[in-house]
Write a protein that binds this DNA or RNA. Structure first.
Lengths: 194, 194
DNA sequence: CGCGGGTTTGATGATGCTCAAGCCCGGTGG
DNA sequence: CCACCGGGCTTGAGCATCATCAAACCCGCG
């Protein structure tokens, strides 16, 4: 249950076994079924969730009713509406399980307690956030510089598994293109590819 | 010199006056003139820079020779090629002064020392990074859901001052549109506006 | 077996890009 | 101090990419 989390933490900071043990008490393990919502847009986001198993997406719905996938979170990733979680404001995003998932939920009070009692976690989260920023900046640049096909190929390189786990239309949404365009691109790539 | 930095830190975490004093020793104040590069793409990014005065941009150049502005950093903002700074790898971005600027530079060793000696700064940076992520996610969603005109109007709302300080083509690049398109949009908005 | 959501395929169209020329203005040198 | 660059902004015409709208198809699930 906690192995993946511990492994993830150890990949960024050094923690003792005592700390490992202590860590566990702040988290609430929880399961959600495919299609279940972890968060409804407009609610306050109560959890910062570490994905132990399964696949999750966060997305927003614009004025025209179109969905926009903000993030996919598979095993080893964190997901939340961070703005809502931190400021306790209304969530801009919905969070939904794409597959049956197992997560470790951190409430805001639990997180604060953890950060106070285990200062090393402050560092862990800082590093986590920094890497996230690097990734997000690269995504912005990709969105601005690549064609639809190039964006798709890039995604295939970076998260090859995702393409098969998430519905096409959600992948398209993540890339900022329509499902129709993605379908056509896939056809072309398949033909070229061999 | 340090007032803006201290103010910024105090807006996110509580620090004592002793800590304030101690803080200063980790930073190297430096000035750059308009058009001067703080970082050349391909080099290792040596600094995490807090902007005290002036305006800076970070950008990348794609295969076709087109520039893409990743970030503008005015007074009170941090700028760096974070990937390069943290991992000591070749920078993907260039960083250039748009106006004459005054910055407080943090080297990696200095930052590490500071984080060890002033653990509260670990929290400060975590919070800073988290807010940055919220902003970046919103930018991605905006890029995916808005028209060129809407993106421009949104920028006007969020950073109204920027439009007058940065050259149009750089603003266009930040928005992911061409300078020609931005010019036409501005004309339309001006006509509609009154 | 049949329904229904997701994907594919097709036809059409709009947004924004490209290429090109002209214009405006600020900086530089005579 | 004025004239002349030259870069950046503007304007125009044509075009490409991708979105939209619509229908057919496929397949998994009830």
């Amino acid at each position: 249950m906690y192995e993946l989390l511990i492994e993830n933490i150890r990949s960024k900071v050094a923690i003792s076994e005592a700390e490992e043990e202590q860590l566990k008490k702040y988290f609430i393990p929880k399961k959600y079924r495919k299609r279940q919502y972890l968060l409804n847009g407009g609610d306050i986001c109560k959890y910062f969730s570490f994905v132990v198993d399964g696949l999750i997406r966060s997305f927003t719905v614009d004025d025209k009713g179109h969905e926009h996938v903000v993030q996919f979170a598979a095993e080893g990733w964190w997901v939340s509406d961070m703005g809502s979680f931190l400021e306790e404001t209304e969530a801009m995003y919905h969070i939904e399980a794409i597959e049956d998932v197992e997560v470790l939920n951190l409430t805001k009070p639990a997180m604060e307690e953890m950060l106070n009692e285990l200062p090393v976690m402050e560092r862990y989260f800082r590093i986590l956030m920094q890497k996230n920023i690097v990734t997000l900046q690269q995504r912005v640049v990709a969105d601005h510089s690549l064609t639809a096909e190039e964006k798709y190929l890039r995604l295939m390189e970076i998260y090859p598994k995702l393409i098969h786990r998430a519905p096409q239309q959600q992948v398209a949404s993540y890339l900022g293109i329509t499902p129709e365009t993605l379908s056509r691109i896939r056809k072309q790539v398949a033909e070229k590819g061999d």
